[in-house]
Every structure is written in structure tokens, then in C-alpha cells.
């Protein structure tokens, strides 16, 4: 199953390499990775989603990530009440004949925009949970997906359901 790891790290060269290395050496695949500046100056926040890793091994990796000097905080938040989102850009084959059908499919989803329309394709931009992005992708498959670009999962712990 997938585990979601949230980390606050110093924004310095080589940090990403140190973190990725912890997964590489155990043979764990990083399913998605999202990094950007955080609310703290010179600190970045990372969401690392790991695929097919046993929970106790992920626990060990989390502790080992904490050993990395530039990692300020790290937590496996999979079991916590969290909000997750990701954005996907999907280029789909769309002729004038099929374009209308595709738009009808898109209407079934929230958070979807058409970012570009070209004679033979359109670029769809969608933000939602990973599950919903996956189900849109499944529906678009028959029209012919040309290219997919995803941000990777973003995640944030909800305060409202946290035990105090």
C-alpha cells in the first residue's frame, strides 16, 4: 500500500539526493514527490509517497530520514486525518467529432479545466485527490491519452479532527 511521508527540510543543495538515497538503498519506489517552499524561510516542505513498502520498513525509513541533518521534521501521515490533492495535466486526442464527448466526461468532475484546445488534441487540467484523478484518466483512456504530467500528491494534516 501507499504511505504518505511529510517532511520539513532545509532548502540546501543535495538535500533531495540524501532523501531519495534513503529510499533507493532499500529498493523502495517513490510513487510521487512534491517539493516547494514552506511558510518557514529557507525551509522546504516535501510530500513523499512510497509504493509497495511494508509499514514497518516505512517506519524505519522515516527514522532514518530524521537522521539526515537537514531534515527538520518528518512524519508518516498516512493514518492521520489529512487533505490530499494533486494536479494533473492530460493531453488527450480530440478531433472535432470527439471533443464534445470528452467535454461531457469532464462535466462529471469538479476541479477540471480545459487548458488548451488544438485541432487534434486538448490539454485538460485537473486538481483533485489521487483517486479522482485516476478515475478521470480511466474514462479518458478510450479517447487516446497522449501525455500525462502530474504534480504528485500534496498533503496537509487537518486540525479539526486531530486529538488534542
Amino acid at each position: 500500500m501507499r504511505r504518505i511521508i511529510l517532511a520539513l527540510v532545509e532548502d540546501k543543495p543535495g538535500v533531495l539526493n540524501r532523501i531519495a538515497s534513503m529510499f533507493r538503498r532499500r529498493g523502495f519506489n517513490i510513487y510521487s514527490l512534491a517539493v516547494g517552499h514552506s511558510e518557514v524561510p529557507d525551509m522546504s516542505r516535501m510530500v513523499i509517497v512510497v509504493d509497495n513498502a511494508p509499514p514497518n520498513a516505512v517506519d524505519q525509513v522515516t527514522k532514518q530520514l530524521d537522521k539526515v541533518i537537514e531534515v527538520v521534521r518528518v512524519e508518516d501521515i498516512t493514518e492521520l486525518p489529512i487533505v490530499t490533492r494533486e494536479t494533473a495535466m492530460i493531453k488527450v486526442r480530440a478531433s472535432p467529432a470527439t471533443r464534445g464527448q470528452i467535454i461531457e466526461v469532464l462535466d462529471l468532475f469538479k476541479g477540471v479545466e480545459v487548458a488548451d484546445v488544438s485541432p487534434n488534441s486538448i490539454i485538460i487540467e485537473m486538481t483533485g485527490t489521487t483517486d479522482v484523478v485516476e478515475s478521470l484518466l480511466a474514462l479518458l483512456k478510450d479517447y487516446g491519452i497522449i501525455e500525462i504530467m502530474r504534480t504528485g500528491q500534496l498533503a496537509m494534516v487537518r486540525d479539526s479532527q486531530l486529538p488534542d
Binding site: P13, G14, N17, R18, S21, R25, I69
Partner: peptide
């Protein structure tokens, strides 16, 4: 060298 010694050092610097 920082890349090569990453897994065998507690920390390294360039």
C-alpha cells in the same frame, strides 16, 4: 566525492 561518500558518512559538505 560528496555523492560517493553519502551512504558512508554521517554528513558531508561541499
Amino acid at each position: 566525492v560528496t555523492g560517493a561518500t553519502l551512504p558512508v558518512t554521517k554528513h558531508n559538505y561541499l
